[in-house]
Design a protein around this nucleic acid. Structure first.
Lengths: 212, 212
DNA sequence: CCTACCGATCGGTAGG
DNA sequence: CCTACCGATCGGTAGG
């Protein structure tokens, strides 16, 4: 009696590449569809049977592309974590003042979030129920730690106020950024730039009307 | 091979109340323990067998207290939603300027969040996979809507800047507040007041050092 | 001969 | 203790 979502394989563009082999899902497309289903129902709550139904193929056909359910999760986490780490590394390499690097990280993180929405959503909902998930959480914590260090540096530079703990500020800022996955819908937006602007504006200047 | 968490029933104080009946869990304590387990493993991924293990009683004993797994979820959601709705209603009844009511809501929401951490955590992780969850999500959206209305009013009052969309600001602000459940640990804090202060400060004034 | 896929079935575990 | 269902795997088939 839950309104069963009916999908056709044709709704997801399979491969476009060369001619060899039977037409159907390639691994990347299959992973993307599975990730979207995971986000709708929860990773552990999603059975291989449900994935098969949504994909429009049999359970065993899934095992042709991946070796296990966890391998699908792994592919999604690797995808999103690599992108987020790249954003931080590229900003740190700018050589600009910490406050500028911070703004770059926030803006680019919002971009990654909206561009790779299903993958990042899955990452942010992990609870650490396996070694794979624990490792992913550790990589997330390292990102938060590096942003906290940047905030502390910007405070030392005199660009950010020093009366808020850098670690708390880092967690709250990332919490605001990450919460975007809960309501952002790419099909309703031309670009994520206005959202990134609002986040940066809120975090740096606050909601209060400037004194005049 | 996952490091199985071992717990004793004695780790959770059962009832303290009168003498009648066999000593053991009362419904409230049982629900609280179950909610903590749900948060560790995910609601749907948590089997009744695992709950029984963690409680130190049999599966069938759980059915003495509740009629279904979903009834446990229902109790937890009712608890946290009622508290959050009360916070909003009490602030709205203050009759103070919207910006003051807004600050009250944020501060008291952080209080509810930290005081009822497991219940609110469970609420925030729902995906809408059942009618019960869908109804809870609708009540959450209504809270966000009322906060957006307060922000819009405060903008009209000239207390908040008008160049950020009230609905976006409401979502981002609640996103920041709610993200606290991901890292706040009551056993490491005397009170939640410093966290509430940091959130209000960040949201109203921002991170940037005041111009001088 | 490659890739994508199928039906059938295994041992095991879920909720009740 | 029952029934339904889980993830995983098999040998085999079909399109290109």
């Amino acid at each position: 009696m839950p309104p069963q979502r009916r999908r056709q394989a044709s709704a997801h563009r399979p491969r476009t590449s060369p001619k060899r082999g039977r037409p159907g899902y390639d691994r990347e497309t299959l992973v993307r569809v599975c990730v979207e289903v995971f986000n709708l129902r929860g990773y552990e709550a999603t059975s291989m049977g449900v994935l098969a139904q949504e994909l429009g193929i049999s359970k065993s056909a899934i095992y042709h592309h991946v070796n296990s359910k966890e391998e699908i999760l792994d592919a999604a986490l690797t995808h999103s974590l690599s992108e987020l780490e790249r954003v931080v590394a590229e900003a740190e390499a700018l050589g600009t003042p910490a406050v500028v690097e911070l703004e770059t990280i926030i803006r680019e993180s919002v971009n990654v979030l909206t561009r790779s929405l299903p993958y990042v959503t899955l990452l942010l909902r992990l609870r650490g129920n396996s070694e794979l998930e624990t490792a992913a959480l550790a990589r997330r914590r390292e990102i938060t730690r590096r942003i906290a260090a940047l905030i502390a540096q910007a405070q030392a530079d005199g660009d950010l106020r020093s009366d808020i703990d850098a670690r708390t500020a880092s967690r709250l800022a990332m919490g605001m950024v990450n919460s975007i996955v809960d309501w952002y819908r790419p099909e309703r937006a031309d670009s994520s730039a206005p959202v990134a602007d609002a986040v940066i504006d809120l975090l740096l200047s606050g909601l209060r009307r400037a004194a005049n």
